[in-house]
């Protein structure tokens, strides 16, 4: 394999606020390989979504990338001018947002929202009547791809006229409309009913197989990630605290935070096991703890945890940011 598809090195994202500089992402390293499915897990406020908004240059001002480098197919894309970023967005890297109801424009039909994406990236479209026909066919084909029945009829619908699962599929169809190499699915199931959640996740898995699109599954739910992703990255308070092959990380978590996350989700295998939420609150993003950021909430904390700590590699392509791991 010739290097990762997406490579993030030392990324730091800050949001100036009245109370001080919020360090939403603080020194994140990660990579995504072609065709793989990477899970990124953490509580809200862990910086997982912000990391990938930064990749696409979608940080809302005054938020900005303070340090680090983002490379896509070996080319540095952090700090690219807006015009060049625009060419990447939707075509090379696409994203779906958490709630399709708010992410889709309420005033435009499904067709309009799909078609404008294709038009933005395909300069070879013919002019005139043929153009409209081709665009409509492609839009229908996309709806069929994401498993929407009666695509011709759905094209004319407005987002609020569709069900939640259907809207999520439309958003995925839009994201895939230009066959991106990387799809970032930000909390793709959070806004959905439990029964629909599984359908959408299966759809994403199926699309990855058929189209060869790499997928980053951003979720607060380790369970969702466990089922579909080969590798997982666990984030806490703007940092990566653990990463590795999903089976290994879940089977034998090396960071206390990962263990906490595992205990906080219901398990189908052991329905009797009590669910235990992690006690305490997410670290203050303006004045984070000096050492391990999880230290104030960690039951195993000891004085050594108050010293700065780097991600420590473990055998089997794993790493964890904990003093328990031999340096």
């Amino acid at each position: 394999m010739s290097g990762p598809l997406l490579e993030i090195r030392g990324l730091a994202v800050v949001f100036p606020t009245r109370g001080g500089l919020v360090r939403a992402v603080d020194g994140v390293d990660l990579e995504v390989f072609s065709g793989e499915c990477l899970g990124v897990v953490g509580e809200s406020g862990s910086g997982k979504s912000v990391t990938f908004l930064a990749v696409l240059g979608l940080l809302r001002p005054p938020g900005r990338i303070e340090a680090g480098e983002i490379r896509f197919e070996g080319r540095t894309i952090s700090g690219l001018p807006e015009a060049e970023l625009r060419e990447l967005r939707g075509r090379a890297i696409a994203i779906t947002l958490q709630d399709a109801l708010t992410a889709l424009n309420p005033a435009l039909t499904v067709e309009q929202q799909i078609v404008e994406t294709i038009e933005a990236h395909d300069p070879d479209l013919p002019r005139g009547r043929a153009r409209r026909r081709i665009l409509r066919e492609r839009a229908q084909e996309l709806l069929r791809l994401v498993g929407i029945p009666e695509p011709a009829r759905r094209l004319a619908a407005y987002p609020h006229e569709l069900s939640g699962g259907m809207r999520q599929r439309v958003m995925i169809a839009i994201a895939l409309s230009c066959r991106p190499k990387l799809l970032i699915a930000d909390e793709p199931t959070t806004a959905l009913d439990v029964t629909i959640q599984a359908q959408v996740l299966d759809l994403l898995a199926e699309l990855r197989e058929r189209l060869g699109t790499a997928i980053v599954l951003v979720s607060h739910d380790l369970g969702v990630v466990a089922e579909h992703c080969g590798r997982v990255v666990v984030m806490y308070a703007g940092q990566v605290v653990e990463r590795g092959p999903t089976a290994a990380v879940i089977g034998e978590p090396r960071h206390p935070y990962t263990r906490g996350l595992l205990r906080s989700i219901p398990s189908i295998a052991e329905p009797e096991r009590p669910i235990r939420p992690i006690p305490g609150q997410m670290a203050d993003p303006i004045r984070p703890p000096p050492g391990c950021r999880f230290e104030p909430r960690c039951s195993l904390a000891r004085p050594a945890c108050r010293l700065p700590i780097a991600l420590r590699p473990i055998d089997g392509g794993r790493a964890a940011r904990c003093v328990e791991v031999a340096a």
């Binding site: 967005r89 939707g90 947002l97 708010t102 309420p106 958003m171």
Partner: peptide, 12 residues
Amino acid sequence: DYVTFATAKGLP
């Protein structure tokens, strides 16, 4: 969000 998503689609 729809403005963020529209930007993410690569629209001008």
